[in-house]
Amino acid sequence: MLASYGARRDTARFPDPDEFRPARWLEGSLPKESLPFAPFGNGPRFCPGRNLAMIEAAMVTSVLGRAFDLAPDRSGPPVTERVAFATFPANLYLRARPRA
């Protein structure tokens, strides 16, 4: 989900959020954490496979949810985000116990 509405209202990360200044993205003054979460892109160049990916993710989650009891594993380091070609969680661990 693209959280652009909230990102555009965050004055701590986006000075003058309602001002049209496309050059702000070229200045290099915004940290990577300022970018909104857009795993499939946005606008006219969004990922054409996003609908299939969302259906597959829902199906895998439902199959695992029926077969296992899932609980967070908090024994590791805190969960963070890793920004590379795509944004994904780091240190996100689950414990899976088969259901009887």
Rank of each mutant, 00 (worst) to 15 (best):
F68R: 02
P72Q: 07
P78G: 06
P17A: 02
L94H: 09
S34Y: 04
E27D: 15
I55W: 04
F37I: 06
A57P: 00
G43N: 08
L70C: 07
I55P: 00
I55V: 13
P77I: 00
R8Y: 03
D16L: 07
P15M: 09
A96Y: 04
S29D: 15
F85S: 13
A12L: 14
L64F: 12
F40D: 02
G49W: 05
G65Y: 02
R24L: 03
P31G: 08
V83I: 12
R50K: 13
R21P: 00
R21I: 03
E19C: 05
R99C: 03
S62M: 14
I55A: 13
G6P: 01
P98S: 13
R45S: 10
D16A: 14
C47V: 04
A96Q: 07
R8T: 10
A86T: 15
T11S: 13
A96V: 08
R97C: 00
T87D: 01
A96S: 05
L30N: 04
A100I: 06
R99W: 05
I55D: 06
I55N: 12
A58M: 13
L30Y: 05
L64V: 11
S34F: 01
P77T: 11
P15I: 09
P72L: 09
R8N: 10
A53Y: 02
V79I: 15
L94C: 10
E56I: 08
I55Y: 04
L94S: 07
F40I: 03
A86Y: 04
D10V: 08
F85P: 00
R8F: 05
E56Y: 04
F20V: 14
R66K: 10
Y5D: 11
L26T: 12
P48E: 02
W25C: 04
E33F: 02
S4K: 00
A100R: 10
A38L: 10
G65E: 07
Y93K: 09
K32M: 10
A23H: 08
T87L: 11
A3V: 08
F46D: 09
N91V: 03
E56A: 02
R21W: 01
D18Y: 03
G65F: 03
L64I: 13
A12T: 14
R50Q: 13
A100L: 10
R95D: 03
